[in-house]
Nucleic acid binder design. Structure first.
Lengths: 340, 340
DNA sequence: TTGTACGCGTTATCAC
DNA sequence: GTGATAACGCGTACAA
């Protein structure tokens, strides 16, 4: 019997050894039954199963996986697992993981490179089989030895500073382009871009798509239009604005709403068309509805998870780069001509 | 040297044994250095550290924890980790976990009892030290043996069908009561309740608070008022409605918006006051702003995590039941008199 | 069909 | 200060 003193951690759990001695068989036989391996008499099987039942035995996966070398475990790392998009992506990863019997760790970095590294390495120390990472900007060489040691890695939504890992992106550039083309088709010619950190990957993509659409239409771009702030939005000559994040869409809408409010009192209203990147639950109920560009984060998570699991189950081949579409959802806030 | 063939899983990782032989010391000495135990010459320490550096050694936590019996790992289980509240709660758990060096698994049940059990037991098989669970309705006896074996468990937002575990709740009943008192103070007397599954815990709590407030005001309640559907909201005589979930708040607002639209065309508008349970990012930008009752999900997660970690680190004592406040946020959709 | 012996990578107990 | 050696709970040759 297992009569070690296990500190104050409750009743010690029964092990296979305990099951074996209770069933009067050898350890290996219990192992066979537990793993459904052939070559055990129905009679013996029954005895073992009985002992398992009696003892409330549950196999220790940690031990099992120390032996087999795999943990059937994935890690998900993003800026903030509570952010709607990252949470949805995490759920997507979880869903494909569950289908294959994998569990997933979730971790948030708050955009801090050191925390990302700490988290990733902690997960590798736990010997996760794979990692889905929404990488912070910067290099990711710290992962090279882990990948070499067999940890699969897929990057999501942002390309990593590292070669040799699959990447799943959203066509943010195309989304921005579609949004700006849409605004131009409404007659807008002075279009702005609003975001917090312009040096972030998404900002750069969006500004790229924006510039592409403007250039294609032969429209000039004033540098000040792409460095707007919510407060000074109305001091700028832009008649339309693309917002790079939910947060800045909200800020723009608030700024415009309060301005409209005070200006209405003075008998003058200036409307600015708004397209936001990232959808909202209430987007269709506000008036006018918020026109947005968005992507299916859960789908991106599922694709990343699939890719990861495929690598884990031994698929070799060249590094893949998948780009999923973004979608323009017109709801009213961008569907009117400029108000000069 | 470690010359086993490790399948196709990349270069085998260096182990303590490898470090030891490279540094020309015994295994135990490496262990001492790695764990910062006293009793090692600075000279030896340096040699070991050098070998660790050279080999890129990283301790295998799985093996370590097989020995020590703890995994420094928590599990978080909720209906849907992508839901805003649960995601925030998960993040709260993660934050307190990180401070103590714990990692957290996240899992979603979609409200399915079988999946909850499967997830919880899978996590226990991985020997998580503790579990934070938003339980589905039903009993949770399957956890009793695990708890007895030393797995700590804290339930969140819904009480479990099980004794002997801490619970962290939100004062949903009080929130509903406050909302109804508020509506009554505006002059409303026929107030409804709208939700999907009326048998869920939150619905019951909210209806309880609702009934309490109505009774306290001496107001009669027609049974049909608490079994509304979004479609038939306007066929009902209620002048105000409390919605039990974000989803149903949205449904009610949509139903009222379209009704208002068509009725305005006919020159008649009927307004219904709305209070929703659960906040929205855009709640203040819709007109009128959406009045809601909400709670701080991240804080609930942190409290649950703290409680759990305290149990894990050996705090004994009676089962605790913590109830965190809910808050009424008036924004306009409920701040007007009934429109008879 | 069943059992024995050993190894996974680490910590822990004792000697030296 | 340092080092054999035995665990931890399980999988896996290979033998019986």
């Amino acid at each position: 019997m297992n009569n070690q003193v296990h500190a104050m951690r409750g009743i010690p759990r029964p092990t296979m050894k305990d099951v074996a001695s209770r069933a009067g068989v050898a350890l290996k036989t219990v192992s066979r039954v537990v793993n459904g391996e052939p070559g055990v008499t129905p009679e013996t099987t029954k005895r073992v199963l009985g002992a398992i039942q009696d003892l409330g035995f549950r196999r220790n996966e940690s031990a099992r996986l120390l032996r087999t070398g795999r943990t059937a475990t994935l890690g998900f790392i993003a800026d903030d697992c509570a952010d709607p998009d990252y949470a949805a992506a995490c759920r997507g990863v979880e869903d494909v993981a569950r289908d294959r019997g994998f569990l997933v760790f979730a971790g948030s970095t708050d955009g801090d490179a050191a925390r990302e590294e700490g988290l990733a390495l902690a997960l590798c120390a736990r010997r996760v089989d794979g990692l889905v990472i929404v990488p912070v900007n910067g290099d990711h060489e710290y992962l090279a030895p882990e990948i070499e040691a067999g940890v699969a890695a897929v990057f999501m939504l942002r390309p990593p500073g590292l070669d040799g890992a699959d990447v799943v992106l959203a066509d943010e550039r195309g989304g921005a382009k579609a949004a700006v083309v849409h605004l131009i088709s409404q007659g807008h010619r002075r279009i702005g871009f609003l975001d917090g950190d312009l040096s972030g990957y998404r900002s750069r993509q969006l500004v790229g798509g924006y510039a592409e659409a403007m250039a294609a239409a032969g429209l000039p771009v004033d540098p000040s239009w792409t460095t707007l702030s919510p407060q000074r939005l109305l001091d700028s000559p832009v008649t339309a604005v693309l917002c790079g994040s939910r947060e800045h869409t909200l800020r723009a809408l608030r700024a415009l709403a309060t301005a409209e409010h005070t200006q209405t009192a003075r008998g003058r209203t200036r409307r600015v068309a708004v397209v936001g990147f990232g959808d909202f639950e209430l987007a269709d109920l506000i008036s006018p509805g918020v026109t947005v560009v968005s992507y299916d984060a859960a789908e991106i998570g599922r694709v990343a998870g699939e890719l990861l699991l495929r690598r884990i189950t031994g698929e070799n081949g060249l590094t893949r780069r998948v780009e999923l579409p973004t979608r323009l959802v017109p709801r009213g806030s961008a569907e009117f001509p400029p108000d000069e």
